[in-house]
Design a protein around this nucleic acid. Structure first.
Length: 719
DNA sequence: TCTATGGTGATTTTT
DNA sequence: TCACCATAGA
């Protein structure tokens, strides 16, 4: 047992071996918080004799949950398969599946993702005859989600003005549509679980008695409904350990409430606060700089990171002439690092907004440095995948209007907007699902003979699928649907790389289903439902070939929780960072400062901070002062370099290739870096570099499909 | 129903 | 600037 504690520092040990009761662990960046959580779980089981089944561990992302489960298993030495470790949404989902009746849900309820939600809200607005230009769908969506996060039903909202009253009407209509279609959105997962507990004390009691010990990660990111959820589950009897860092609260804009940390201490009396301040990640210099920066924030719970390691190198600040020059500097430093034997995966370039990645990508491309940009489309979010899943949803439940809308004319079968509007209107007046409405309209011979034919064959198709699927395994169902729905044929027609990729993605879905069959313990009859929920809740890893050693490009937000040996914090200019939309709100600026703190503390050994004196933004050249955050870092920790040569944007033509050719020395060949080329077998790719001349020139090309290859120029075609 | 064109507007993201 | 949308015309 003491073995468990041996590897920990005093503060960590205090947290891990704290007596039962409530604990708030204020865990600074890089202080080993996951380690503490995982050890605490092991300690509860091994020394306190708690059953693994009486422990509930909650995180925000699937990634964090998977990591925690994995580390618990490693530490305990046995599989923790039946332990409840998961996200708020995943755990809520599990509970709602078990209590669908009490929760007033259909047995096979499905989950809407944000995109489905958007479409359904838009439809609700059309039905209410609201002008989309005046009433933004996005605004309505935000309104609805934030009301739900506060736990409010449409009937519970007092509307003092016309705008709010309108949004409430939309909320009401949307909610009714969800109910009728048998679907729920992400926030509903939490809200309906909370309601379930409130309305059914015996269900609540069951979970309260089962989960005697709750552990919550990243508590500063909890919103109102999540807090209420936890509080209800904890009741008066149970114990709770929460881990968080108020200085890393960067999601206030999407409803996260840092105040929940303080509130926890008020609500759960006698909660013990333990600070983890020893940092195992960064150099002394980086920590001093980060501490100095964050000290400019007010109302902190207070924390000072320290290390017993060395001070390391100074922070290099680079003042670029413009954004190109800034990128040029970063790329050159990366090349230096590469030559001195660093792995590219240890290097990250961070920025405030996604648009900033472009210039840096172009620079990296010129030198053929592989990179990976985070924040792309995820597997289950791809249109073709969502189409296929919509077929499966409609097969499972014909009331599923969002699924119906998605595929009624995908692939194209000549069912246009007018036909659809007629179905929608009939469905609305008769309070029916679209499927049912269509059925009745066909019976009444509402449509022209031709249209009726198309519609009838669509319904036949779905009925046939439903019939056949009864006897098929999950992956066979998927296969049947993507083959015979015409989806594959449809995307095969699509020209270029895109179509090929889509077909491949669809085929991959069969594999995903097969894998799911083997891994999920679900009964065969429930597998389709569970698979669909899995697809909605776990949108999958971003696609990238992880095997290739590449520089990591991402926003500051997505960098949270990660660490890299070398970090470039780019675009540190007023109005970009802190972002101009936050400038008039002191709270906003403080959150930006925390974002900067998060960024800086990602660096283990070396931190570069860069900015540009001028930058092309929204098509215009703009000038900004260096970020105020730079001035908040003590000068003695900084080594500032200014640009030596002006790197100007070519003023001639404005195509991408010429503007980036600033980096390139080999413009005189048709195979200059950045150029798109095609190859008979490998498809489309981007030139990274070349050597030699004429027909025998060797060209290094990165192909979308097969990765980087060096080829003889004569085998390549310039588009 | 598909394609071309012009207007618009432009943080951060997970489930 | 550029990517997204909505609308008009084939």
């Amino acid at each position: 047992m003491t073995q468990l504690l041996n590897s920990l520092n005093p503060a960590q040990r205090e947290a891990v071996a704290a007596p039962l009761g409530h604990q708030l662990i204020l865990a600074g960046a890089g202080s080993g918080k996951t380690r503490v959580l995982v050890h605490r779980i092991a300690w509860l089981i091994q020394t306190q004799g708690l059953s693994p089944l009486s422990i509930l561990a909650v995180t925000f992302t699937n990634k964090a949950a998977n990591e925690m489960r994995h580390r618990v298993e490693t530490l305990l030495g046995w599989p923790a398969k039946n332990m409840w470790i998961g996200t708020f949404h995943g755990l809520s989902h599990r509970i709602l599946r078990a209590h669908w009746q009490e929760a007033n849900l259909p047995e096979g309820f499905q989950i809407l993702d944000s995109d489905d939600q958007f479409r359904l809200i838009r439809r609700a607005m059309t039905e209410l005859k609201l002008d989309e230009d005046r009433w933004g769908v996005k605004d309505a969506q935000r309104f609805i989600n934030s009301q739900k996060e506060e736990g409010r039903d449409p009937s519970e909202i007092t509307a003092y003005d016309h705008a709010t009253a309108t949004f409430v009407k939309i909320y009401q209509a949307y909610q009714e549509m969800c109910q009728r279609a048998g679907v729920i959105d992400f926030t509903d997962l939490l809200l309906k679980t909370h309601r379930l507990w409130q309305n059914h004390p015996q269900v609540l009691a069951h979970y309260q008695q089962r989960f005697r010990y709750l552990l919550v990660d990243e508590f500063q990111d909890t919103n109102a409904i999540q807090y209420a959820w936890l509080r209800l589950l904890a009741g008066h009897e149970n114990h709770m350990m929460i881990v968080g860092d108020d200085d890393q609260s960067i999601y206030g804009w999407r409803g996260a409430r840092v105040e929940n940390l303080q509130r926890f201490c008020d609500d759960f009396r006698h909660a013990r606060t333990i600070r983890l301040e020893q940092n195992y990640r960064s150099t002394g210099t980086i920590l001093k700089a980060a501490n100095a920066l964050i000290a400019h924030n007010t109302e902190r719970l207070g924390k000072n990171l320290w290390t017993d390691g060395s001070d390391g190198e100074l922070i290099t600040v680079y003042a670029g002439f413009n954004d190109l020059d800034e990128a040029y500097f970063i790329v050159n430093r990366i090349r230096d690092l590469q030559y001195t034997g660093h792995s590219l995966r240890d290097i990250a370039v961070l920025y405030r907004s996604n648009a900033q990645s472009r210039v840096i990508e172009e620079g990296l491309m010129q030198y053929g440095i592989p990179y990976r940009v985070y924040g792309g489309l995820r597997y289950f979010d791809r249109a073709e995948i969502k189409d296929a899943l919509a077929y499966l949803r409609l097969i499972a439940n014909q009331q599923d209007d969002p699924a119906f809308e998605r595929i009624i004319n995908t692939p194209l079968r000549g069912i246009g907007d007018r036909t659809l509007t007629a179905i929608r209107e009939f469905a609305k007046t008769e309070q029916l699902s679209l499927w049912h409405a269509l059925q009745l309209l066909l019976e009444r011979q509402f449509f022209s003979a031709r249209m009726a034919g198309s519609l009838e064959s669509f319904m036949q198709l779905i009925r046939m699928f439903a019939e056949k699927c009864r006897t098929l395994s999950l992956h066979e169902q998927v296969e049947l649907v993507i083959q015979q729905s015409g989806l594959i044929a449809h995307f095969r027609q699509e020209k270029g790389e895109k179509g090929i990729a889509r077909v491949e993605n669809l085929e991959e879905l069969i594999n995903a289903a097969r894998q799911f069959e083997q891994e999920s313990g679900a009964e065969e009859s429930a597998q389709l439902t569970t698979f669909l929920a899995y697809a909605a809740l776990e949108s999958g890893e971003e696609q990238a070939n992880i095997s290739e050693d590449s520089v990591q490009l991402m926003t500051l937000h997505s960098a949270k929780g990660l660490e890299f040996k070398v970090v470039f914090l780019s675009g540190c200019e007023e109005e970009l960072f802190p972002h101009y939309l936050t400038l008039d709100d002191p709270k906003g600026i403080q959150e930006e400062r925390r974002l900067c703190y998060v960024g800086m503390t990602r660096a283990m050994r070396k931190l570069y901070i860069t900015y540009a004196e001028s930058r092309r933004l929204h098509g215009k050249e703009s000038y900004h002062k260096p970020s105020r955050f730079l001035h908040e870092i003590p000068g003695e920790l900084i080594d500032e370099i200014r640009f030596r040569t002006k790197v100007s944007r070519p003023t001639t033509t404005s195509s991408t290739t010429t503007s980036t050719a600033t980096f390139s020395s080999s413009r005189d060949t048709p195979f200059y870096p950045g150029r798109t080329v095609t190859h008979k077998i490998f498809g489309e790719g981007v030139v990274l570099g070349c050597e030699g001349t004429g027909e025998h020139m060797k060209v290094k090309v990165r192909f979308a499909k097969v990765g980087t290859k060096i080829l003889i120029a004569s085998f390549l075609n310039v588009e």
